[in-house]
């Protein structure tokens, strides 16, 4: 297999989970109820743990003197390849839940395929992460139902949230050259192939929650190529602050 393709594949996985974990952890201390501070922190911890494992693997493959922290925390913005959805601000609780629901429902299907990867590391990573992501999806589904079918206010906020994030979903399901190469070589997952199962699942949950599934086909993209939203620079400024202020320091 091509190292370049494999490393890019790993980097996307790591960046998706790091950036989403970074965003989610912003809720810690600010949630609507203490139980949710705990739940969201838990999920953020899972993502950060997952990304750490992948960055470590990447560091050992690239072997250029950078450790997982140097890779995670010192790149330029254009070198981050997360999907745009991850870097969007949290918004209200409904928006955070909508993103959690969209991403975990996609991610679980993705990991269930990745588990069969011919690549030892990725298969193991998927196996381990599935347990966590099942819980994330359960948590998000419970809240989609509560908020979608709660009060008129929560219903309209939830509908607004799922509509607002919809145009960021396409990027998750798009197979570009890297994905296609990975699929061809037997160690990657076709994202597009997950679409039908995903749509069925979302239709069922949204129907139960009384939410309308958006239908717009057009979507935002660019994250996989390092072209980000205006929010990313601020996220990185915070996340990289100490690494940049004290280059090479150990913590």
């Amino acid at each position: 297999m091509s190292n370049q393709v494999y490393n890019t594949y790993l980097l996307r996985l790591a960046d998706d989970t790091l950036i989403l974990g970074q965003r989610l952890s912003e809720w810690c201390g600010h949630g609507p109820i203490l139980e949710e501070d705990i739940a969201l922190s838990n999920i953020a911890l899972d993502y950060i743990g997952q990304s750490t494992n992948v960055y470590k693997q990447l560091a050992s493959l690239v072997n250029d003197g950078r450790d997982e922290d140097a890779i995670a925390l010192t790149r330029m913005e254009s070198e981050y390849v997360n999907a745009l959805m991850m870097e969007l601000p949290n918004g209200d609780y409904g928006t955070t839940i909508a993103r959690q629901y969209y991403y975990s429902s996609f991610y679980l299907l993705y990991l269930e395929q990745l588990k069969n990867s011919s690549d030892h590391f990725l298969a193991g990573f998927a196996e381990k992460s599935i347990k966590e992501v099942k819980y994330h999806l359960q948590h998000a589904t419970d809240w989609i139902l509560r908020l979608g079918d709660g009060t008129p206010e929560s219903h309209s906020r939830m509908q607004h949230a799922v509509n607002g994030l919809w145009p960021y979903l396409g990027e998750l399901f798009h197979d570009d050259e890297t994905d296609m190469e990975a699929v061809k070589e037997g160690w990657g997952v076709s994202r597009e192939a997950l679409k039908t199962a995903w749509t069925n699942r979302v239709n069922a949950v949204f129907a139960e929650a009384g939410l309308t599934v958006p239908s717009e086909a057009w979507y935002h993209s660019g994250g996989r190529k390092g072209s980000h939203t205006e929010h990313m620079g601020f996220l990185l400024a915070e996340m990289q602050f100490l690494q940049r202020a004290f280059p090479g320091a150990k913590w």
Binding site: L18, Q22, S25, E26, C28, G29, H30, L34, D37, I38, S41, N42, A44, L45, I48, G49, S51, T52, Y55, E68, D69, A72, L73, E238, M239, F241, L242, Q243, F246, A249, W251
Partner: peptide, 24 residues
Amino acid sequence: GNWISRAPSLRRKAILISKVQDEA
């Protein structure tokens, strides 16, 4: 919580989140 987003390494970030979560 003020330093979670700026924690200097992945490990420190995880430890800090889990600490603040313990306090909750």
